[in-house]
Design a protein around this nucleic acid. Structure first.
Lengths: 132, 132
DNA sequence: TTATTTGCAAAAACTTTGCTGATAA
DNA sequence: TTATCAGCAAAGTTTTTGCAAATAA
């Protein structure tokens, strides 16, 4: 488990976020510290962190993948207008599956629960287009 | 709500699927009937069907969007080895959210619940790489 | 020392879009 | 008749990858 400056700073930066940033956001921020880091390195390291279970990748509709340093299984909410992603206090797990025979035939590894709608600040300022 | 041959056949084709195909799969299949349909038309019409609530788009990790002519709110399972997507008999809804004040401040429109793991046929034939 | 990682740039993968001719209503 | 749609090809966006130099252990 080799530690490089890039890797350390990327994880550190991701941990400061509660808003589930995409790779390019992390790239922009990390460049403030390591001015010539490349976007490829950010992508490679985010995937590495996911593989090592130090971060999770969230595919929540829209174009870009989002990342989260909180690896617990938790639900998300995405605003279809501004694309913001926030955590949701919801309870879910494999027990939502009703067919136990079906479960027996597969190896379940995880689940993701995502709500979508319009966030408070977009409800306030009407007129913005839906981004996805 | 204008009906074109392309639109009709794309929806018809999507309805034959229980496996949540991507746009390029539908494209290949529809070309058997309309040999010079373009991929752009397939993308445009799939999005149109989603907008008209005749289909839904599923973003379930991995690279491509998947489509489903079953517009009911239902859970999915994705195999991390072969990328197959199937329906899951699970019960979920906005009632999983515990914080009612939080709900009050947003306009909830939908939810998606996705399980992932290894499907029966991939468990049988070990050795295949995980695709995502 | 050496296997792993980086930066860079090019390529890949997926999706969208501008334009002109075609078509449904 | 006319607003909408199709086909085509080009471009856009996001992510991955090959390679030579750099680096952690």
């Amino acid at each position: 488990m080799r530690v490089t400056k890039q890797r350390e700073i990327i994880l550190e930066q991701l941990k400061t976020h509660k808003d589930h940033p995409s790779a390019d956001i992390i790239y922009d921020e990390v460049r403030g510290v390591l001015s010539n880091i490349s976007l490829g390195t950010v992508y490679r390291n985010l995937e590495w962190l996911v593989a090592k279970n130090l971060a999770q990748k969230i595919n929540i509709g829209c174009s870009k993948a989002r990342f989260d340093a909180d690896i617990s299984m938790h639900a998300h909410f995405r605003c279809i207008k501004c694309d913001a992603v926030e955590d949701v206090d919801a309870v879910f797990g494999f027990d939502l599956i009703k067919d136990k025979d079906w479960m027996q035939e597969r190896l379940l590894k995880g689940a993701s629960l995502e709500f979508y709608g319009i966030c408070g600040s977009c409800l306030a300022k009407e007129g913005a287009d839906e981004t996805c």
